[in-house]
């Protein structure tokens, strides 16, 4: 039962070959086996949203998936967002709107927002608030996070869609 299972994880377009126990969560394996510690682990039972990553285009709680379930899926984490020294537009919007204080929740929020806006690039204010309610910020800086999303939504509207999705043109 404790035997390890070989799994290929594709994280940020790179393959990681890891051996995991079935019970190891994707969040723990990304941090401990892949060495990508940008993904934060907070509550470990799906409440806080700190470990949110993108799996096959959907924002998911990495503590509620087992790593063995992610074999062959396209995984994106905070480490894959910036292009060299150039921040991803969501990261830039966070910086410009002071949307982070201690920063612990930030990677989860960035991944949540990025994936949610790839699915629908023109959410109403209420939809943005509902979406953000998924994740906890214990510095309680929610208004500035909301402002950052609004700025990014505005940028997307000007550009006519998201980077990966132009269906709202």
């Amino acid at each position: 039962m404790d035997s390890k299972i070989p799994v290929r994880l594709n994280v940020n377009s790179r393959d990681y070959h890891v051996n995991v126990e079935a019970r190891q969560t994707l969040a723990d394996v990304i941090r401990e086996e892949c060495g990508l510690t940008g993904t934060r682990v907070g509550c470990e039972h799906g409440v806080c949203g700190s470990c949110t990553i993108i799996v096959d285009g959907a924002p998911v709680r990495a503590c509620l998936m087992f790593a063995v379930q992610a074999e062959g899926k396209e995984i994106r984490t905070i480490e894959g967002m910036a292009d060299g020294a150039e921040l991803h537009p969501v990261q830039r919007a966070f910086s410009e709107n002071h949307a982070l204080q201690c920063g612990f929740c930030t990677p989860g929020f960035i991944m949540l927002i990025t994936a949610a806006l790839e699915q629908d690039s023109a959410p109403a204010d209420e939809e943005i608030r509902e979406m953000l309610s998924a994740n906890l910020c214990r510095c309680t800086g929610y208004q500035n996070i909301f402002n950052a999303v609004k700025q990014y939504v505005g940028e997307l509207r000007e550009r006519g869609g998201t980077d990966n999705n132009d269906r709202n043109n």
Partner: peptide, 12 residues
């Protein structure tokens, strides 16, 4: 569906 948990939970 809007009332079920949160956005990422509804994806899975």
């Amino acid at each position: 569906a809007q009332n079920i948990a949160h956005y990422p939970v509804r994806q899975r």
